[in-house]
Nucleic acid binder design. Structure first.
Length: 108
DNA sequence: ATGCGAAAGCGTCATGTGTT
DNA sequence: AACACATGACGCTTTCGCAT
């Protein structure tokens, strides 16, 4: 199959075609803090929220890896199935041809 | 050996969905 | 409603195959 692995993630579709897919500011991700505290807020909650963020990122990193692994497995399973079915199809066509050779003239 | 384009892989963000 | 998890989309990096 031409479909291999993460091809859906190639980003081949212009973001403008999908209104819900807004352009993100590439620098903004580093500035997000998740807590309501600005630079004058208490130190402890800020550290907590940073820890929370790190934990969340770590978990999501793992989840993304697992998700991609499962997707690859699924696609390769489909590819195997296609190969098997194509082979079966060839065999059946051959079988049909042989039967026609034997009985075909009697039918027609 | 090296430069280049395509494909694959990765981390992150946004969002949908199921669970408590 | 709040939370956790799964996954699509995006941008960036790495790897691979090929032409020069």
């Amino acid at each position: 199959m031409a479909v291999t692995g993460d091809e859906t993630e190639a980003g081949s579709v212009a973001a403008g075609d999908f209104p819900n897919c807004q352009q993100r500011n590439p620098t903004s991700r580093l500035l997000k803090t998740e807590s309501g505290f600005g630079s004058y807020g208490p130190q402890k909650p800020l550290e907590d929220s940073l820890q929370k963020r790190e934990l969340r990122l770590m978990k999501n990193r793992e989840a993304a890896r697992e998700c991609r692994r499962k997707k690859k497995e699924y696609v390769s399973c489909l590819e195997n199935r296609v190969a098997v079915l194509e082979q079966q199809n060839k065999t059946l066509i051959e079988e049909l041809r042989a039967l026609k050779d034997i009985y075909g003239h009697k039918v027609e």
